[in-house]
Amino acid sequence: MEQIDRFSKRFDSTLLKATATVKESEVFIDDSISYGFRAIVVPWYLMDRVVRKVRGTDISAACGAGFPFGFETTETKAYMIRQSLRLGPEVRDIDITANISAMKSGDWDYFEREISYLSGLLKNVICKVIIEVSYLDAVEIEKACSILMKLPYVDFVKTGTGYGSRATTVEDVKIIKRVVGDQKGIKVSGGVKSLSQVEDFMASGADIFGSSSAIAIYGEFTEKYPGIADLK
């Protein structure tokens, strides 16, 4: 399990709105670096800029494969992963979107076969699998997590892309935690906008977060808990 000793290291600072401009992304990257977040995510075609700017720091450039619905073929996702890793060793996180259609169809063999293959390409970097809980019922969430538990190179179960039908809930996280325990990390993404949400999610078992509001949340944290390194 990834060791976290600072609150800032609980956040993948994310800018993925469709209208994000190059200039906006550049400012976002610089601001996120100044806060020392665990990772930075911007539109994929601009990730080389993140790689250059985080070089020599402990901040990861995080890329995705199959975002946001996971509909691409397995080989297409594998190509995306390989291209991301070619950007440099600063790419230390890959977030794979599982095929939502396959999960909703009950094709769990496809789900397992695809994620097993793709996660096997990521033995030396952090692999997160997005199961997009907003489209799944409790039984489907449990099934997806039980399969991911069998895959040694999956490090985190991630709740969403931010493009789902609703925000992640505390109950979603509790369901995941019941299955994965302390064997896999949990990343909450999708609607994380306040410190109070982060506190509730952590109390339910979440470890890290993807948020476009990471800077604002960190500001809330330092105001509420001056001199404290992290929430426990």
Rank of each mutant, 00 (worst) to 15 (best):
V170W: 06
G64C: 08
S189Y: 03
R10L: 11
A78S: 10
I59R: 08
M149V: 02
A138P: 08
V180C: 07
S194A: 02
K53C: 12
K158T: 02
S116Q: 02
E2R: 04
D172E: 14
D31C: 00
E140N: 07
E90H: 00
D137K: 08
K53D: 15
C63G: 15
A78N: 06
G185F: 04
A214H: 13
R82T: 07
S119M: 01
A102N: 06
I217A: 09
F37K: 12
R178G: 11
D93F: 04
S211L: 08
Q3A: 08
S8T: 09
E142T: 10
G162F: 12
K123H: 03
A78M: 05
P89T: 08
K128D: 01
A18H: 10
L231V: 13
T57V: 12
S196R: 13
G181R: 06
Q183A: 12
S84N: 01
F156V: 09
A138T: 15
K53S: 13
T161E: 10
Y218N: 10
I147W: 00
D155P: 03
D200L: 07
E90R: 08
R6S: 08
V154M: 09
I228A: 11
G160T: 15
G88M: 07
L15H: 06
I115F: 02
F221V: 14
K77I: 01
K143M: 09
M1R: 05
R55T: 12
A206S: 12
E199A: 03
F201H: 11
L16F: 05
P152V: 01
A144Y: 04
A206K: 06
E24H: 06
G106H: 02
M47W: 06
A98D: 06
I228Q: 15
I228Y: 13
S8C: 03
D137N: 15
F28E: 12
I29W: 05
G205D: 11
D30G: 05
M103L: 00
I215C: 10
N124W: 07
G64E: 00
R113K: 04
W108C: 01
V22R: 11
D12R: 07
V41N: 10
V41W: 03
I130Y: 11
R52N: 14
F7C: 04
S101I: 05
I208D: 09
V179D: 13
F11E: 07
